[in-house]
């Protein structure tokens, strides 16, 4: 694969980097609580359906 095919992903990473700088000023314990608050907005809403839907044959 060529380097060009990763261009879309690189943009995400630049944005993340900006976020990272902001987040690091908030400190660690705030980080855990923030994330526990934020998790519900990140996760797919129907937990049961999401988990049950992930069935794949076994691999090695």
């Amino acid at each position: 694969m060529t380097q060009e095919s990763f261009s879309s992903r690189k943009q995400h990473e630049t944005q993340e980097h900006a976020e990272q700088i902001q987040v690091s000023t908030t400190g660690q314990s705030a980080g855990v609580d923030d994330l526990l608050d934020e998790i519900d907005s990140v996760l797919e809403s129907n937990a049961e359906e999401f988990v049950r839907g992930f069935v794949q044959k076994g691999g090695q």
Binding site: H12, E16, G31, V42, L43, F50, V51
Partner: peptide, 28 residues
């Protein structure tokens, strides 16, 4: 079910929603 979902989503490789990556972004 929610905990099962967290247990799974910790391993989601997408940095925008994978829980491991969200922890890492927060320095955790």
């Amino acid at each position: 079910h929610r905990l099962a979902q967290l247990n799974l989503t910790y391993h989601d490789i997408d940095p925008a929603r994978g829980l491991f990556h969200l922890l890492k972004k927060r320095g955790l």
